[in-house]
Design a binder for these strands. Structure first.
Lengths: 250, 250
DNA sequence: TCATAAAGTATCAAAAACGATCAAAAACAT
DNA sequence: ATGTTTTTGATCGTTTTTGATACTTTATGA
């Protein structure tokens, strides 16, 4: 049996059964265990499957990250610092918009115990906000599974009823030329509108997002203050030419 | 059976049954008790389930717990029966409104696996709805702490964008003369509007609500079909003169 | 309350799976 | 045909997973 034959067979099985055991494959192909292992290793490298102890399973897209709240603790610490600074910008009486997302979520615990009003499209934020007894408005609209963000036409209409003093946005990509980007066009629309409704905007993005470009652009660099945690001097000057930048932590 | 297979199996069971016993899992997977325990420990660490003595249950956010202040299991069983009947009224292609509240919340697990769209003002419902992969719209507006219902002017405006085939409402008071009532006037407004936007309305109310009167009236008896679980014959005829009544269970 | 049974934790050795390595076999090129 | 490259299968030491055991904690009812 040829290598490519085995590959198709494996992919076919994984696709159909969601998971395959190495021993199954050994019997089915007649090849040795070593060979099967090599096959799986290669298929994993090519991003077709995910190896697990004893076999391999279907590689689910980015669906996994949303439901699996596993963060490298370093990245989490960085996000917290960014979030803490962002939260410190909130003043008594402010009405703020907090974008859906994990970085902005970290803000909530640091929000000052003052009279503020929060509007959000992130359902994951609600629990924390209510726990802190903050007056909270939620945007109406359809719920995007996985990210639990409220999006769609309804969200845009619903948001139009509000005006914000400050908006705190997340971003998947920050690029000196292409500006701020995010994968989902519908989420981009919501972000865009939130920013136009706000007197002032802060974009929270850890180092991993810098230089990246995602599919949908929702703002120019100049449209908001960037809050991040690490920045090469040359990149920094590139950004600073266009907008205000705040670098937190070490 | 591979680790990941067991994981999916466990999650599937928990998702469907709300709770699983370790012994069940031992029999179902053929793995040892130790292994199952380890699995549960890990799944708990990953925030997928909550371990309890003897098994594991679905992890629910505080949005859901908040409004569930420990009901007697009898009353819960009755609510479940009412909810189950209500859910059975939902048909393929329906667009339904589900009111905030504990009784209506029970409906979610019984909703048919068909193409339906749900609109709700109850944040406690969202988790369950998304778990069942139901297309869900949330009403925008201010969040009432304690009950986690979305209310206020924004809620009314936001809801106006939708029309429903069926609306399922909760009520704190059901009275043959004073109709359906609820304590909070703002919630009453939302209920009222939801009913006018729906072709058909069902009110879910267990025996404890019958004959009661709360502060704010949101509908006449005739405005919807009452679903309840116990009814004296004389009271029943009183209600039946005005509207349709469905009595479920014993 | 106390006794008892069921469930939980911690630990450890056996079993299974893994990765690395190497020589034999097959395919390939000249 | 001969030397070279690629693929394959076997082996071995290491790591991960597993199931059994002993001991502790929790639930329950007399």
């Amino acid at each position: 049996m040829l290598t490519d034959e085995r590959f198709s067979l494996i992919l076919e099985l994984v696709k159909h059964h969601d998971i395959v055991k190495i021993q199954e494959l050994v019997h089915l192909t007649g090849a040795s265990e070593s060979t099967i292992r090599r096959d799986l290793t290669e298929l994993e490298k090519k991003k077709f499957i995910k190896r697990v102890h004893g076999g391999a399973k279907l590689l689910k897209g980015k669906l996994q990250e949303a439901s699996v709240p596993e963060k490298s603790s370093k990245s989490l610490q960085e996000k917290k610092k960014i979030a803490q600074y962002a939260a410190s910008q909130v003043e008594e009486g402010d009405c703020i918009f907090i974008d859906a997302g994990t970085t902005t979520q970290q803000m909530i615990e640091f929000l000052p115990d003052k009279e503020i009003v929060v509007v959000t499209n992130g359902l994951m934020h609600l629990e924390g906000l209510l726990l802190k007894e903050i007056k909270t408005y939620v945007i109406g609209g359809v719920i995007k599974p996985r990210t639990n963000a409220v999006i769609g036409r309804g969200a845009l209409e619903s948001m139009n009823a509000y005006r914000f003093d400050k908006a705190f946005m997340g971003a998947n990509g920050v690029h000196h030329e292409f500006g701020y980007t995010t994968p989902d066009p519908e989420e981009a629309q919501v972000k865009q509108l939130a920013m136009t409704l706000s007197r002032e905007t802060f974009i929270l993005a850890d180092e991993g997002k810098l230089g990246e470009i995602a599919f949908s652009k929702f703002a120019e660099m100049k449209d908001g203050t960037l809050i991040t945690n690490e920045l090469d001097d040359d990149v920094q000057s590139l950004y600073r030419k266009q907008t205000k930048v705040k670098v937190v932590g070490s």
